[in-house]
Structure formats: C-alpha cells, structure tokens
C-alpha cells in the first residue's frame, strides 16, 4: 500500500514540475561519447582527450563509453542507431569505410552526421633493425623474387594495415598473396612478433611503433605519405623511396546519428571545431605522436566517401571483399 502511494506521489510530482528541454538550451544533461574500440588503445586515448575538451565547451559531462567488438561494428552501430538528439555522439574510425565491403554491416560513412575529421596516420612499414632490406625498393624486390616467403602482421585479417599492404603491392603490380598475412589482435602484438622473429615486416602507423623504434628494436623503412612524419623526419616517404605517391592510412573523426536537429548539429560542429583547434589537443597529439588532420563536416563526408571507394577497390582486387 505504502509502496503504491509512494510511487504515485513520485509520478505526480514529476508530471507537475517537469520542465521541457528543447534544442535551444542543448545540452541539459550528460552526453554519451561512444568509442568503438577498447580502453587502452589509440582510439580510446584520442577519444578521451576529445571528450574532455568537448565537455569543457559544452558545459555538461561528456562520458566516454567503450563499445567494443566485431572490429568496430558494435560501436559504430551504437552511434548510428542512437536517438538523434545530440546526446549520443562518438568516434568514427577508418573501419566504417571497410566493414560493409566485407559484408559485416550495412553501415557506411553515409549513415552518420559527420562533425569533423580529427586525425590521420599514414601507413609506415617497420622491419627488424638487422633486416637485410635497406629500403622499400629492396623489400619489394625480395617479395617479387620469393613470393610467399615473407610474412607480415600488424592487425586482424582484413584490417586497415592488411588492406594497406595489399593496396601497395597491388599498385606495384605484385600479387597481394606474395606476402603471407599473419593476423594479430593489435599493431603492438604484430610488432612484438616482429621483434621475437615471427614475422618479417609490419605495416602500421608511426605512433604505434614509436616505443619499439625508440628502443632500437624496430626500424621504420618508409612512410607512405606526401610529407615526412613529424615523429621520424628521417624516414623516407614513398616518393623518396620508390617514387610512388600511393597513400592509405588510419583516420578518426567525430560523428553523430543521422537526422540531428539543425540547431544541435550546428552547436556540435562548433564544439568539435573548437576542441580540434585548442592548444591542449594539439599538444596531446604531438606528445603522443598522432597525426593532426582537419576536415569540416562537409569535407569529412566527402573524405569518407573517397576512402570508402579506395578501400573498396583494393579489397575487391585482393579478394577481401564479399
């Protein structure tokens, strides 16, 4: 009896004094910030600093939530499927342009409201310091001469670094199967296998290889980008090594579910831009060695569409796509 009257009292009380919150005073409560990868990884750390900066601007807590699994499928679906009220946003990673080619999801970059591209890390190729290959040209020649002998690792089967390596080989007219891919759970795990002598090369980004490169356990052979990397300016670019402008890499952006109310979309766009341009973000990215790259909402949408097409054509060419 008491229980019922208590509940009834509560409900009537709520009904009476409930204020109506609209888009004008957004945000009025905490925002959930979905990171589609686990705590401890690169996406997680970029996501956490970005959430902190957004929180400072928006004035309400921005809570990081790791929704992991299925190479990002679960987290990206959580963002795309959330109510478009501005209270669920999250990090979009390069996998969103890859997973649907593999038939793992229907989502693509077009399933989101893009808010801004905040990071890009191009592919670099790492080998052991005592490896016989002085440059990318020699490595490619060795692959050409002995197809199936060299082994590479650094991500799961069909992950970005796998596709990236295949894309490079394809562009150089080497059959992608000429390097055997050893799947690994993370780039760090692949690098450890490289150090332990299990594989011969590991494509990946410079920040991921940084600690082992600094420790002298791993050598970076080439960075496949137009300009040298900020962390290791002495590592030759693709053009310097073999004259190729071919590039591919991992990127991260901020996105929200589709059909966001215009006022909220504008508020979030401004907040994302402000966070990106803040000194803290720049310092953080430089400290960690992550690459800065900005694209506003429209350019980000175009960027995702282009990446989607490029990745898709490589994946189809090498048989990774359905």
């Amino acid at each position: 009896m008491m229980c019922r009257s208590f509940a009834a009292m509560l409900l009537s009380w709520f009904a009476l004094i409930a204020p109506v919150a609209g888009a004008a005073d957004y945000p009025v409560r905490p925002i959930t910030f979905v990171v589609p990868w686990g705590a401890g990884g690169g996406t997680d750390s970029v996501g956490r600093i970005f959430a902190l900066l957004l929180e400072r601007d928006l004035g309400k807590p921005v809570n990081v939530v790791n929704r992991t699994g299925g190479s990002g499928v679960v987290g990206h679906s959580a963002i795309a499927g959330a109510r478009p009220d501005g209270y669920t946003i999250g990090v979009l990673t390069v996998e969103i342009a890859m997973m649907h080619h593999q038939g793992l999801t229907r989502l693509s970059g077009a399933s989101f409201t893009p808010l801004g591209l905040i990071n890009f890390d191009p592919t670099a190729i790492q080998v052991r310091p005592d490896s016989p290959y002085a440059g990318l040209g020699e490595l490619l020649n060795a692959i050409r001469a002995h197809p199936g002998k060299l082994k590479a690792s650094g991500t799961a089967q069909g992950g970005i670094w796998h596709v990236s390596l295949c894309g490079l080989l394809h562009e150089q007219r080497i059959p992608p199967g000429a390097v055997v891919w050893v799947p690994s759970n993370s780039n760090a795990a692949g690098l450890l296998d490289l150090v332990a002598g299990g594989v011969d090369l590991v494509p990946g980004s410079h920040p991921e290889g940084r600690s082992l490169i600094d420790a002298g356990k791993v050598k970076s052979l080439v960075i496949l980008d137009e300009k040298p990397s900020r962390l290791y300016p002495n590592v030759p670019t693709g053009v310097q090594a073999i004259g190729t402008r071919w590039t591919m890499g991992a990127w991260r952006g901020i996105g929200a579910p589709r059909n966001l109310p215009k006022a909220i979309e504008a508020r979030l766009q401004a907040a994302v831009r402000k966070a990106y341009e803040s000194k803290e973000y720049e310092d953080f990215m430089h400290q960690r060695g992550f690459g800065l790259r900005w694209a506003g909402p429209d350019e980000f949408a175009a960027y995702m569409a282009k990446a989607d097409e490029q990745l898709g054509s490589v994946m189809k060419a090498v048989g990774l796509a359905k």
Binding site: G40, S45, S211, L212, A215, R288
Partner: peptide, 15 residues
C-alpha cells in the same frame, strides 16, 4: 623498458 604493454592497464599507462 620497451613501452610494450604487459596488459590492458599498462597500455593506458604508457599513453
């Protein structure tokens, strides 16, 4: 010693 995470905790710590 090598900046290699021994578990998911030290992965965050390294960052």
């Amino acid at each position: 010693v090598f900046g290699v995470p021994g578990d998911s905790i030290t992965a965050i710590v390294i960052g």
